[in-house]
């Protein structure tokens, strides 16, 4: 331990307090009852804090913009995403083709946004479903522990061990190729990661004093989970979710890379990236386009994720 005394304590010793240093101010009944700031619900407060966080708000705007473009851009362009043009193979951006053309002369502006539909849908759906399922199961395991935990964790180990490719191929066999197949396949495998992670967090949190205190006070388990555990892991979960979305988009890209992606002529960012990589040395611009959109989306999601993390953190509530 340090032997030095803190400066504050030294000062207090030098000037002892006397009664004449204090004045009675009385009490102001009106001021005591006044509500100094608006009464905000948890989510209202989170939204308020998110809006104040500039990077996060920019992230939100980018995601929203990409979402809107994915919906409307292909409708508004006069090019079809399947029309090929032998005269425009690997064309560079121009007034006709805003982002140039791909290997078969298809307009990349349209294909990028058709791809965005697929990639963003897969990313958001798969990550969200995984997060919810994994959080519930992981939370229960972590909180109750014991046999339930033991059994579920062994199931998790088994699922982890099954090659996800086999599952993808089998789901494809049943459901055919398409976005839904990829989402289902990713969910069957994906939730276990979140589950293990949330379980670990809950394991840690349930030993915290405030949980213990709540238990001693006789608060029911359900309320403890809702009021104490969930808000406290929310930050980590949001960070994790923002990592899971690129994870899902990449998983789709990987499946496309080995040829198990969605059915042609549909495309995704993963497919665009994969097709472009073969000509990296000759037409680097082909790689730049999908890479740019994947990167900026991830950047936006990450900034948003950070902002959300702070916004939902109960310990930062009410701070500016």
């Amino acid at each position: 331990m340090s032997n030095e005394k803190s400066p504050v304590l030294e000062q207090q010793e030098q000037e002892p307090l006397t009664a004449d240093m204090f004045v009675v101010v009385g009490k102001n009944e009106a001021a005591m009852d006044a509500i100094s700031r608006p009464n905000l619900s948890f989510w209202q407060d989170a939204w308020r804090r998110l809006k104040k966080n500039r990077p996060a708000f920019i992230g939100l705007c980018i995601v929203a913009l990409y979402g809107l473009l994915a919906i409307f851009a292909p409708m508004l362009s006069h090019y079809s995403y399947t029309a090929m043009d032998p005269n425009a193979m690997y064309a560079l951006p121009s007034l006709e083709h805003w982002l140039g053309c791909d290997a078969t002369g298809r307009d990349l502006w349209v294909r990028v946004w058709m791809g965005a539909r697929v990639s963003l849908t897969i990313g958001l759906c798969a990550a969200t479903i995984n997060m919810c399922v994994g959080a519930v199961i992981g939370g229960l395991c972590g909180y109750y522990g014991g046999k339930l935990d033991m059994i579920v964790m062994r199931i998790v180990d088994v699922i982890y061990g099954i090659p996800s490719l086999i599952i993808t191929i089998l789901v494809m066999l049943v459901l055919g190729r398409g976005i839904h197949t990829l989402i289902v396949a990713m969910c069957i495998v994906g939730w276990v990661g979140t589950c293990r992670f949330v379980r670990g967090e809950v394991y840690r949190l349930k030993e915290q004093d405030y949980v213990l205190a709540a238990k001693v006070l006789g608060v029911p388990d359900f309320t403890i989970i809702i009021r104490h555990i969930i808000p406290n892991i929310m930050g980590m979960m949001v960070t994790n979710l923002c990592m899971a979305i690129p994870g899902a988009i990449f998983q789709e890209a990987f499946l496309s890379y080995i040829g198990l992606g969605i059915a042609p002529p549909d495309c995704s960012w993963g497919i665009l990236a994969k097709e472009s990589i073969a000509v990296l040395q000759m037409y680097p611009f082909q790689v730049v386009i999908p890479a740019f959109f994947i990167c900026t989306t991830m950047l936006a999601l990450n900034l948003l994720g950070d902002g959300l993390r702070d916004a939902v953190d109960p310990k930062l509530r009410g701070t500016e």
Partner: peptide, 15 residues
């Protein structure tokens, strides 16, 4: 960190 997560490995490897 974001750059790391946002570039697919096959692009990163090739680059």
């Amino acid at each position: 960190a974001i750059l790391g997560t946002s570039i697919p490995d096959f692009i990163m490897g090739a680059i």
